[in-house]
């Protein structure tokens, strides 16, 4: 299934140019076309095509609420806040870049200095009613903290639909099972990053 999503090369997948004949302009031409169409029995080709599909019974319906299409790992749905693998603490350092870059101004955050004199996020909400799911916040985040998740089923009784920090944060029990999923889309580390990384010049 995933290959289907990733294959962008559609040019050789059975597309071909259809040979369309010009419309006849003379009366005789029109007459010939009418005779042609009548006796070539083109209508029966159409009948056969739909009957064949019915006999093959190759149904492609997905009964939506029960079954769901797999979505691509790069899909940009409702945001998630990731935790650090090592210490299970929040990745977000409260730098405010996501709030700054958001083009629809829908991220609102507040920070404070905690007891260990470290910056900590005290308030963080996203108004999903305004969010256009552009992915800029995920791309700009230096800590890979804010990312997009796969949850696309939202409903709200008003245009404002907020999601707050607690709701976005990976739950601790998921962390305990080592089940947190990294986002592969905007801002994520590209595959084989380890091989490609170079030492800083001073180390030569």
């Amino acid at each position: 299934m995933m290959e289907q999503f990733n294959n962008r090369n559609i040019s050789d997948n059975g597309y071909f140019l259809v040979d369309i004949v010009d419309y006849p302009t003379t009366g005789w031409g029109k007459f010939k076309r009418a005779i042609d169409r009548t006796f070539k029995l083109e209508l029966f080709v159409g009948l056969w095509v739909v009957l064949r599909e019915m006999i093959k019974f190759d149904i492609h319906t997905i009964s939506y609420p029960e079954e769901k299409m797999p979505i691509g790992p790069r899909y940009r749905a409702v945001h998630e806040m990731k935790r650090l693998w090592e210490s299970d603490t929040e990745r977000c350092i409260g730098c405010g870049l996501c709030e700054k870059i958001c083009i629809s101004d829908c991220i609102r955050m507040d920070t404070r200095i905690d007891e260990e004199s470290r910056k900590e996020v005290s308030e963080y909400t996203i108004n999903l009613g305004r969010c256009i799911f552009c992915g800029y916040c995920a791309e700009v985040c230096p800590e890979l903290a804010i990312t997009h998740g796969g949850e696309y089923e939202n409903a709200s009784d008003q245009r404002e639909h907020f999601v707050d920090y607690e709701a976005m944060l990976t739950p601790m029990d998921v962390m305990k099972q080592n089940a947190q999923k990294e986002f592969e889309g905007f801002g994520a580390i590209t595959p084989h990053e380890d091989e490609r990384v170079k030492k800083t010049p001073l180390a030569y």
Binding site: V50, L51, E53, M54, F57, D58, I59, H60, T61, S63
Partner: peptide, 13 residues
């Protein structure tokens, strides 16, 4: 149903 099957759908279910 017939239309659905011919268009590879399920119809009312």
């Amino acid at each position: 149903k017939v239309l659905a099957f011919m268009q590879r759908r399920l119809g009312p279910m």
